[in-house]
């Protein structure tokens, strides 16, 4: 070995110098991967949408079916995100503030929907509430429609987005511990006062981060919603399903126009995510310095 003749620091310098060429190669590789995998698809969506000019682009967006799909998507997001927000806070609260047997199983169960295919998420509700399902007859007698209607779409959306808020909050709240809450209690705050004035300000950015991720998935969910929606145009079509229908009708320009609307929403979500993440890490580093 040459180490016997080289001083240790010279070896370290040589290693650094040797890595300069490797470094440029790796950075170039990362840029190429980024451009090829992430930028090109974005470019394709926009260029296909604007192929026939801005006129056709806007026509596809203001068409009544597109508008009703947008409304349905917003409605489904508007119902499912708050549900999972409340669940996420409750779940993170009991997991992070107390010790109890079976906690790790509970955490695994909270994450379970992530490893279930969205198509299965739709299927299980069809088995329960569909015409042939366990509650099918009972629902039919009472004229309640769940599958091929809004409740089914909301259920499927809620299922696939269950873990998002809880997942962000659990590590954050575990790190923060219980001292501040205990202090608030000892100073005479009741349960709600403690939650609103102590816990909530502490978890605010993690909560926003989780909600942003949850909303992104809820807005774009396709497989699960596709199973339960029945694809009734103007009634049970969400935006992603509307994209599919237009695409399968070979109406590619309209499909990509609606897709670019979803793309714009996705970019807004990325910005919001970046912003809440930055606030979160600033909060954490401030905490570390204390």
């Amino acid at each position: 070995m040459t180490t016997t003749t080289l001083s240790a620091s010279a070896a370290a310098n040589a290693a650094r110098r040797g890595s300069a060429a490797g470094r440029i190669a790796l950075i170039t590789g990362a840029w190429l991967t980024f451009a090829l995998f992430l930028l090109l698809p974005l470019y394709v969506v926009l260029s296909e949408a604007l192929k026939l000019g801005f006129g056709t682009f806007f026509t596809a967006l203001v068409e009544p079916d597109a508008i009703s799909a947008l409304k349905l998507t917003l409605l489904a997001v508007g119902i499912s995100v708050p549900l999972n927000l409340v669940f996420g806070v409750a779940a993170a609260w009991c997991v992070s503030k107390y010790e109890f047997r079976g906690k790790s199983i509970l955490v695994t169960l909270i994450d379970l929907p992530f490893s279930v295919s969205p198509v299965i998420a739709g299927l299980i509700y069809v088995l329960l509430f569909g015409a042939q399902g366990f509650f099918g007859e009972w629902l039919q007698e009472r004229d309640i429609q769940i599958i091929f209607a809004l409740p089914g779409i909301v259920l499927a959306t809620v299922f696939v987005t269950v873990p998002f808020v809880a997942r962000e909050l659990i590590p954050l709240m575990q790190e923060q511990g219980t001292q501040e809450e205990e202090a608030a209690r000892l100073l005479g705050a009741n349960g709600w006062q403690m939650f609103w004035h102590v816990t909530l300000p502490n978890i605010k950015w993690g909560l926003i981060y989780g909600v942003v991720l949850c909303a992104a998935r809820a807005m774009g969910e396709f497989g699960a919603v596709s199973v339960v929606s029945g694809h009734i145009r103007g009634y049970t079509n969400t935006l992603p399903l509307h994209v599919e229908i237009l695409y399968n009708e070979y109406n590619h320009v309209a499909a990509f126009s609606v897709a670019s609307l979803l793309l714009a929403l996705a970019l807004v979500i990325l910005l919001l995510k970046q912003w809440s993440e930055a606030r979160l890490s600033r909060l954490k580093s401030a905490g570390d310095e204390e």
Binding site: L239, A259, L262, L263
Partner: peptide, 16 residues
């Protein structure tokens, strides 16, 4: 932008 695939609806990714 690494998180784009999570933010972008899968149907949009599919057709793109």
């Amino acid at each position: 932008m690494i998180d784009l695939p999570f933010a972008l609806p899968t149907a949009v990714a599919g057709i793109a």
